[in-house]
Design a binder for these strands. Sequence first.
DNA 1: AGTGAAACCCTACCAGC
DNA 2: GCTGGTAGGGTTTCACT
Lengths: 150, 150
Amino acid sequence: MTQSEVESTDRRILELLAADGRMSFTDLGKATGLSTSAVHQRVKRLESRGMIRGYGATIDHEQLGLPLAAFISIRPIDPSQPDDSPERLQGIREIESCWSVAGEESYILKIRVPTPADLEDLLARIRSAANVATRTTIVLSTPYENRSVV
Amino acid sequence: MTQSEVESTDRRILELLAADGRMSFTDLGKATGLSTSAVHQRVKRLESRGMIRGYGATIDHEQLGLPLAAFISIRPIDPSQPDDSPERLQGIREIESCWSVAGEESYILKIRVPTPADLEDLLARIRSAANVATRTTIVLSTPYENRSVV
DNA sequence: AGTGAAACCCTACCAGC
DNA sequence: GCTGGTAGGGTTTCACT
């Protein structure tokens, strides 16, 4: 269904929750001029409609021992085979994101590992799991990431 | 209790909060075998140490009217100038992420817009704001994104 | 660091409009 | 869809270990 006209109050709620996923319904109510119950209703509706996919904590991976991030673009070695790379790679925990893209390569992966040696090992696992060639771009720093574009 | 046990409990808490940022301290306690107060203490410490950067709701951008995502790699036109692209681009709301990378280009941006026409407009704004050449890779679909790599 | 108790606040549900 | 009310549960602090 394409009846997705999100009105400004819902948009404001999404904006607030994108910035602080633990904000209480009471505070959301104060920020939007609605009662707690009304906000509660709206948030539950946004959740059930899938507009809110979920809630998560943002972790500092460098402090956690995963300082090395990289983009790995992949391309099938045998283009006659059906490309089910996402399913084949899904079990590899180091892969944070997988995007299907237009262009030279078929997918872009974003990964996190502790050390260059782990990256080398990961590349070998990706190549053999999905039968693909890879191109790797190392992330040097992250000025900002996952900002809300609501 | 030894140091490694402490570490693994914190790690478990981070894992749980990464998967569900609104999980209650009560439930975190049940999942880790700690009292509510102990979990509360640990989470507050993880927050103040910056291990937890924040909490956010994950929004379905397609439903929100932003179905077009893309990666834009940028490269300075005049390499003799200092490269302060991140600050110059920070005000552009369509840019969700900005990574400094090793390789042909200096930064990779991830952006979201409603239509191809908006992308065209955005590219012009990026080029003139940061004095850069751009290379754009359109995202066709997103099998998965921002999975927890804890 | 962890526990349990208590005060306080929030959530979730219910009528009623 | 919104409001106010309420019961139950969650959060936060505190004294103690």
